[in-house]
């Protein structure tokens, strides 16, 4: 367990010391959301209508943005092979790195989301569920993302591929995430989509590390 936390702490530390670079995902999130009123027009009714979807799609894309560096730096500088030779199984390493990724990208997105929701004139009775759905959904995105990042870590131009691999797999997260928010706004109830998201999180916690570890082992050969 302590090795697990060591890796989490180190990844967060390196991200924080990376300075403004670690905030790229959040800044992207804000800018991408701000583009929608510019693209579809500032009409408040329309923005209210599309706000949950826009916020979720942009959160999804922002998460993709930082995936490429998840394993790549450690792979290219030789730390990944040291980590693989350590005591902690690679599956647990993947979990630790996914957790660190979520803390450095997912969590800031969640904290920004209400402000952006206000700017999109989203209905206030959806705010709590928006945060909650992101809280359950973005860890799934980080976990699915580890698979894409691990499969492309040994490819020189892997970064472009990750989105192609990961976005189709993320479709259900998007659907149930937005579904929960809209359920809360339109009074249909957000409970069942949130429960499905939670089940998805459990499944991703179990399956994604196995797939990612297999891919990393191959990359380290």
């Amino acid at each position: 367990m302590s090795i697990f936390l060591t890796i989490v702490r180190r990844d967060i530390g390196l991200a924080v010391r990376g300075g403004i670079g670690s905030l790229v995902a959040v800044v992207f999130f804000i800018i991408a959301v701000a583009l929608f009123p510019l693209g579809v027009g500032p009409e408040l009714n329309l923005l209210t209508r599309i706000a949950p979807g826009v916020l979720w799609v942009c959160a999804l894309l922002a998460t993709m943005l930082s995936l490429d560096s998840l394993f790549r730096e450690d792979y290219e500088d030789g730390n990944l092979e040291q980590i693989a030779l350590g005591v902690l199984p690679l599956e647990a390493v993947v979990l630790a790195k996914a957790l660190a990724h979520w803390i450095t990208t997912g969590l800031p997105l969640i904290l920004c989301a209400p402000v952006l929701a206000v700017m999109l004139n989203m209905s206030t009775n959806g705010f709590a569920v928006l945060m909650l759905s992101l809280l359950i959904g973005t860890p799934i995105l980080s976990l699915i993302g580890t698979v894409g990042a691990a499969l492309t870590v040994s490819l020189r131009r892997g970064g472009v591929l990750i989105a192609l691999l990961v976005l189709p797999l993320s479709v259900p997260v998007l659907i149930f995430g937005v579904g929960a928010v809209e359920g809360a706004i339109f009074g249909l109830g957000a409970r069942s989509p949130l429960m499905i998201l939670a089940a998805g999180l459990v499944a991703a916690l179990v399956l994604a590390p196995v797939a990612s570890a297999a891919a990393l082992k191959m990359a380290l050969e």
């Binding site: 698979v147 499969l151 691999l165 189709p168 797999l169 479709v171 259900p172 998805g200 399956l207 797939a211 297999a214 891919a215």
Partner: peptide, 13 residues
């Protein structure tokens, strides 16, 4: 690996 992850995901999609 991708195909296996995909086939698990497909019914969920």
């Amino acid at each position: 690996i991708l195909a296996l992850v995909g086939v698990i995901n497909l019914p969920i999609v």
